[in-house]
């Protein structure tokens, strides 16, 4: 083994094997790619979210925002949903 090999081993031991980094980066980038490749994706997610939340809360459906956002090593689904008031789920279910 050459000196260079020895040195690079010592230094690379600090970090994860590069294939793990590759796999992680791919996983994250593909979440974005797949979501943006189908614009319907976020829209239909938004519609379904509204359907569920509507039973529990009185929300401003027009102002609702849903986005995928990068945080350090992960992707988060960030939803901003302005709430106007509570609903009593049981009562609503009966009355609606």
């Amino acid at each position: 083994m050459s000196l260079l090999d020895v040195l690079s081993r010592i230094f690379s031991r600090e970090s994860a094997p590069s294939k793990d980094i590759a796999r992680e980066r791919l996983r994250l980038v593909l979440v974005h790619d797949r979501a943006s490749a189908s614009p319907e994706f976020l829209n239909s997610l938004k519609e379904d979210l509204i359907k569920v939340i509507r039973d529990y809360l009185d929300i401003d459906e027009e102002a609702l925002q849903v986005n995928l956002e990068n945080e350090d090593n992960s992707i988060a689904l960030i939803a901003n949903i302005p709430v106007r008031g509570f609903k009593r789920k049981g009562n609503e279910a009966v009355s609606s």
Binding site: P17, S18, K19, D20, A22, R23, L26, R27
Partner: peptide
């Protein structure tokens, strides 16, 4: 390269 962890292996790629 796969053995020393510097290349994604088959299962990594198929999983993704």
């Amino acid at each position: 390269m796969v053995k020393r962890g510097d290349m994604m292996d088959i299962s990594d790629i198929i999983d993704i």
